[in-house]
Design a protein around this nucleic acid. Structure first.
Lengths: 219, 219, 219, 219
DNA sequence: CGATAACCGAGACGGTACGTCGAGTCTTGGC
DNA sequence: GCCAAGACTCGACGTACCGTCTCGGTTATCG
């Protein structure tokens, strides 16, 4: 499915509304690149969300404001597209075992949480997610669902191989792992993500259970 | 505990800067109430974060802008105080067992996630947390740390009673539970918080472990 | 007189800049007509000067903007040419007497002042005359000087025939007559141009003089 | 009449719409002065009408754009008010004779036509007169009608004293004199206004009549 | 009791960014 | 080389808020 997807996934952007034979001067690919590059540059220079202005971006990109507004209907839509574009690709899972795959996924998230760019992306997402309803569905479909599916697939294989309990609630598993990583990534930036053993610790804790003797006896 | 807490916890607010005997007309308590009431009203009418402007709030509250700026140094500080003020009080834990206390804590979070007002509060928190460093520490000290302490206390008692494993990582426990609830609360608003059994399921999953026979054998 | 005037008097227009044999597709005569027709149409629909935009004209004419800019260097030049093109031809004077010729000239101006199209032309002239120095000389040479010459010729014949005083200041005569008509045309649009006797009244007043007995005695 | 007119005649301006007891901070008189001063300065530096921008004026006046838009609804209204404000006061007429008064009036217009500031004002008037209908009536009532009345009064006295013919058409007299001056002022800026004898020449020509012996015989 | 001082609503102030529009230029494919 | 279409940069438009600053007027406490 989706084998021929070359064009990058630009949601929210204003497509030239004509259907077939495209007339007139085509939009400049260079301008688009310059815009995204300017955003990334400003962002890396420490610009917060409120510091990113359309006028500033246009200036930094050497581009007219109209060129931006021709592509996106407003500031939010632009930021959203910039954010989606900055998302790092999903990791390739080794597939040696379900436990190992979970660990690799969490390790990917851990690294992402340490990367300035990725953390900035998450900030924007969390910021705009509720003020721009369109973004919600776009990001949900394009990023979140995709990741949930990865974990879900891993878990299914784990259940089949007997690594995971048969009555496993797949969503719950995903959320407990992802949620814990998000908390450490988004809520604290002096966050304890530096420990490379974190993914192993988390996965094993979840698989082995945290209950003690009294808990085991009660079952 | 905390029996003498009458004055609301207004951090970030600008206190009248003269220390000693205070002269002149005192600040109107009514104005303060009107401001908070206006924010809540606007919020309940569906105003997003970007729709909340100082001018709008002042107008809705029938209050001069200066009256707001006399109390808070800027827009963010006001929103933060409004948010902290809307925080529901912590639940009383029954203390019958550590497991039960965890479940009650999660049940409290679940209810909170279903409440429109509380969800709006979380939105603001997530939004402003990075753009206003002051908020970060205030909210961190005042809300997050307090909750972490509650869970930590519960867990400690659980370890002592043998309900929890002795090598329990308290922070990890807290984050996996809290993180999962936050994901369901903040990221999705069609979220599956409706299931009243959710807290029990989560706690028991974490305590019993999700590993299957193959996992158990490997240990 | 002027029997060979086929090509319209297009001053300010940009001639294809290669001098010699002209190659490639020749310019579309139809496009030119469409542009002028569009301007006239928009003008008659009540468009003020500020409402006439190049983009609007191009759209209304079904023509690309470049097609306009290939012919005129800027907006003002286009309007000027459009205006000159709308100028009605000079009247044929009967020549029966100098007084009669003056009256006929004023009558022509009176009618012109009652015509919406002509009044619009005058508006544009008065507007652009100072912001576009080129227009000034073009319009001056092509329209004003021509008319002054007509009146001057008439007056000269009048002096020769004894109808006019020998010490007549020709320019002053022209300006007093023309000026009065312009005032009624340009400054007021509820203007009293409806009276068909106006030209006769004006000419006779000027010729007979407005001085009374006391004035006559003083001379 | 109008003995108590202190407040300058600011038409088109947006008056604070509250009726009686004026609340809030009053508008800064200084800002208003700075705005007008900036316009005049820019104008004297040779700015054409198209070169006068709100942003430029605000900058030159050291004033926020909003401060301008709080007073005038748009650019045109501001220019109009600036123009009306720059109008020089009417001259005091000596009243020694009707002929003399007419000459003085024309001399005033001649001088005005030689003054850069006044010519600029006339340009703006002629420009905006048709694109901004409100201006038309304001300027008409406030300037043109007033001047017509002056000439009318003079002429009436002239008729009474026998200096002017009894059947004098007052409006026609005014328009022929005023029109001729306007033509020389507005249409040509290399205009022959330098001759100080011009007013005398014009008035005497009009009073004595330009007809020659043949014309006189025909009456 | 009167002065003093800080409060109050209202709204103007200088700025900054927004999103739109037009001018004049450039770049497609097509005739 | 022209044509229609429509992108491009630039810069002004008119609007909305921000955070500050007066206004006239209202309570409090202090002297």
């Amino acid at each position: 499915m989706d084998t021929d997807r070359q064009t990058p996934p630009s949601a929210l952007a204003v497509e030239p509304h004509c259907a077939a034979p495209r007339r007139g001067r085509p939009r400049s690919e260079a301008a688009e690149q310059a815009i995204f590059a300017a955003i990334e540059r400003l962002m890396m220079e420490g610009a917060g969300l409120g510091d990113l202005t359309i006028e500033g971006i246009a200036q930094a990109a050497g581009v007219g404001k109209a060129t931006i507004y021709r592509r996106w209907p407003n500031k939010e839509a632009l930021l959203v597209d910039a954010v989606v574009r900055l998302e790092t690709p999903e990791p390739e899972l080794s597939g040696s075992s379900a436990r190992q795959d979970l660990i690799e996924t969490l390790e990917y998230m851990r690294r992402r949480g340490l990367d300035k760019r990725s953390r900035w992306v998450l900030m924007v997402i969390f910021h705009q997610l509720h003020s721009l309803p369109e973004l919600k569905s776009v990001y949900y479909d394009r990023v979140i669902q995709r990741r949930r599916q990865v974990i879900r697939d891993v878990a299914r294989r784990g259940v089949a191989s007997g690594e995971f309990r048969a009555d496993l609630d797949l969503d719950l598993l995903a959320e407990m792992l992802v949620g814990a990583m998000l908390v450490r990534t988004v809520l604290w930036d002096d966050s304890p993500l530096d420990d490379p053993a974190l993914p192993v610790t988390m996965v094993d804790a979840l698989l082995s259970g945290l209950g003690g003797p009294a808990h085991a006896a009660a079952r």
